[in-house]
């Protein structure tokens, strides 16, 4: 009787992205930053652009993004990542430049910088994580916080009468002529994660083609500051955030058809 060989003949179907540094992240359990990082890294790998990509980290939980991506990185003041990206892209037009920003960074303190980067049709890719709260400082109200949502600075729930209404940045920026691609996706389940990756890939391809400003908003969780379990947080995105922040492609390059929602 011959003994069958034990040499494994397995083909890897999934591996660690080259564009992701093998560094454990500091993100809280259940936070979707890890998923978003991985998706961006996979897209960079698939497009073969790791050595030509320059990232810009912002201020917020993702401030240390440069520790987790194996690409060149700058770290911007709060809200200013699109301005840094402009300075980098204008002087390095052959590189692919992306910012990675949260909702406090992009929609509040950096609202002018993002709006005008879009208006200039700045040829950059923006990865925008919207979890409707300030994570790093401990759960304060963000411009994206939903009416009635309790945070440490809206303890009775956000009251639009005194605290205003949430900003829908994708819809807002899609109105700007310089924006070439604007989409909102969600990270709450596998099907949506796959759609999110497709949108991120498009947002990098739009930059490769020199078509102008591209942004993907990703609805994200913050279990720690929402006071919910990881699983409940994903359900909160699905049941509460998605209805308030509809998913879809709000602006696509003219040559392309819109992907179904």
């Amino acid at each position: 009787m011959t003994v069958p060989t034990l040499t494994p003949r397995l083909t890897p179907v999934v591996s660690y992205p080259e564009a992701l540094a093998p560094t454990p992240t500091h993100y809280c359990p259940g936070c979707t930053h890890g998923i978003a990082h991985r998706l961006v890294a996979e897209v960079i790998d698939e497009l073969g652009i790791r050595e030509d990509t320059i990232g810009v980290a912002s201020v917020g939980c993702s401030v240390f993004a440069y520790n987790y991506f194996a690409v060149d990185f700058a770290q911007a003041p709060h809200g200013r990542a699109p301005a840094l990206a402009t300075g980098i892209k204008r002087t390095s037009p052959d590189k692919l430049v992306f910012t990675y920003q949260g909702d406090g960074d992009l929609a509040s303190i950096g609202s002018a910088e993002i709006l005008h980067a879009a208006a200039r049709g700045e040829n950059i890719t923006v990865v925008f994580l919207n979890n409707a709260i300030y994570g790093m400082t401990g759960g304060q109200m963000a411009p994206t916080t939903l009416p009635g949502q309790r945070t440490t600075s809206s303890p009775a729930g956000r009251d639009p009468a005194t605290q205003g209404y949430p900003l829908r940045m994708s819809e807002l920026l899609a109105q700007v002529d310089g924006a070439a691609y604007v989409a909102r996706r969600s990270l709450h389940d596998v099907a949506n994660i796959r759609r999110a990756k497709k949108a991120l890939r498009k947002a990098f391809e739009v930059q490769q083609q020199g078509l102008g400003f591209a942004m993907v908003e990703l609805l994200s969780s913050c279990p720690t500051n929402w006071g919910l379990s990881a699983q409940d947080s994903l359900e909160y995105i699905r049941d509460v955030m998605v209805p308030a922040y509809p998913l879809g492609e709000f602006k696509v390059p003219e040559t392309e058809g819109r992907e179904a929602r």
Binding site: P77, R90, H116
Partner: peptide, 24 residues
């Protein structure tokens, strides 16, 4: 060469910052 009229001095200096990190 690169020229941008920024939306504010806040943006202008951060564009300078970005270009400076690119080594120009």
């Amino acid at each position: 060469r690169a020229f941008v009229q920024a939306e504010s001095e806040v943006a202008a200096i951060n564009m300078v910052y970005g270009a400076a990190t690119a080594g120009v």
